[in-house]
Simulated scan of single mutants.
Amino acid sequence: MNGVLVSAWAMTVIVAVRYLATSGLFAWLTARVRPGHYAGLDRQIRSEIGWSLATAAIYGVPAGVVAWGWQERGWTRIYTDPHALPLWWMPVSLLLYLFIHDTWFYWTHRWMHRPAVFRRIHAIHHASRPPTAWAAMNFHPVEAAVVSLLIPALVFAIPIHVAVLGLVLLVMTVMGVTNHMGWEMFPRALVHSRAGNWLITASHHHRHHEQYRCNYGLYFRFWDRLCGTDKGLSAP
């Protein structure tokens, strides 16, 4: 039991430090590239950081339990030998995890925009007006649990190399922050390219924070386009 608790505590600290480092880096970049962009938002940013640090525990505890179970009990399908499965499985598993996560996020996100659920849960996230680099994990505890439990569950079902899992978490973290910065950091040539038409960046997600009932995806625009909820790009 002590091992599980230590692992859960350690993972909570790791998630919190990862959040502070990543959001801090992009907030610093915003101050350099767009001076004054977050002017007057000090109170909002303090609230975003407070909720996000609480979210770190909700992310960290199940992740810590899973990490302990993988190392001590062999519970999961995480593997370390790159040759344990065909090498082509590594990029396939990356895309599969991202697609499943994006699907889960899209449909739970749409559910959170039902009026009663929005008022009780999701309104905390939308209190960020406009969102900042600190808002990526600014969630009510129920939303944090819904968002956080999928990846730990997937490692029990779908084999993934530990380095690829780290890449999934890196993509999740960076896109979560950059999509909320309130301005587009990626070049226009990418955002408006054929590939960019299927990827979500700040220009796409900012419109969600402007209009609420559209642009629900996390990584890809697939479900938004398929379901008619893609309302194009904003100009943050």
Rank of each mutant, 00 (worst) to 15 (best):
L85A: 11
S148I: 04
A153S: 09
V147W: 00
L96V: 15
L96S: 01
P130E: 01
H109C: 12
W111G: 15
A136W: 05
W104D: 02
R110I: 08
R119V: 15
P91F: 13
V146A: 13
L87I: 15
L154M: 15
A144R: 03
S128A: 15
Y106D: 06
P141T: 10
I100V: 15
N138V: 01
N138R: 13
W88C: 07
A144H: 08
N138I: 03
I124L: 09
H126I: 05
P141W: 07
L154P: 05
W104H: 12
R114L: 15
P130N: 07
H126F: 09
A133W: 00
W111V: 15
L95P: 13
V117Q: 01
H113W: 07
P86F: 10
F139D: 04
M112Q: 04
H140G: 04
L150V: 07
R114T: 07
F105Y: 14
A135S: 15
S148V: 04
M90I: 15
V117S: 09
L150C: 06
F105A: 12
L96R: 00
R129I: 02
A133I: 03
S148L: 05
F99N: 09
V146T: 15
L154H: 05
M90W: 03
L96P: 05
P131F: 08
P141Y: 03
W88L: 12
V147M: 01
P91G: 14
H125C: 07
H140M: 02
E143H: 04
R110K: 13
W134R: 02
L98M: 10
A153I: 13
Y97W: 01
V142D: 02
M137S: 14
L98I: 08
P131T: 11
V142A: 15
I100A: 11
F105C: 12
T108R: 05
L95C: 14
Y97M: 05
V147P: 00
P152K: 04
V147L: 01
L150P: 03
H101A: 11
H140T: 06
N138M: 14
W104K: 01
S148T: 07
P82C: 13
E143P: 09
L149F: 11
H126V: 06
R119C: 13
R114H: 10
L96D: 00
T103H: 00
V117T: 14
R120N: 05
L150W: 03
V92T: 08
Y97C: 10
L85E: 00
W88T: 08
L150N: 02
P131S: 11
P86T: 11
Y97F: 11
P91S: 14
R129P: 08
L149P: 08
I151K: 00
H140V: 04
H113M: 05
W134Y: 12
W111Y: 12
A123Y: 06
V146S: 11
Y97G: 12
H101V: 15
P82D: 00
I124Y: 05
L98C: 14
L94P: 07
L98Q: 04
T132W: 03
A127K: 07
L96K: 00
Y97L: 03
P91D: 08
F139W: 00
M137H: 14
L85S: 01
F139Y: 02
A136S: 14
P115I: 10
T132H: 05
A123K: 09
H109P: 09
V146I: 14
I121S: 12
M112T: 15
S128H: 05
F99S: 15
W104I: 14
F99Y: 13
H122T: 12
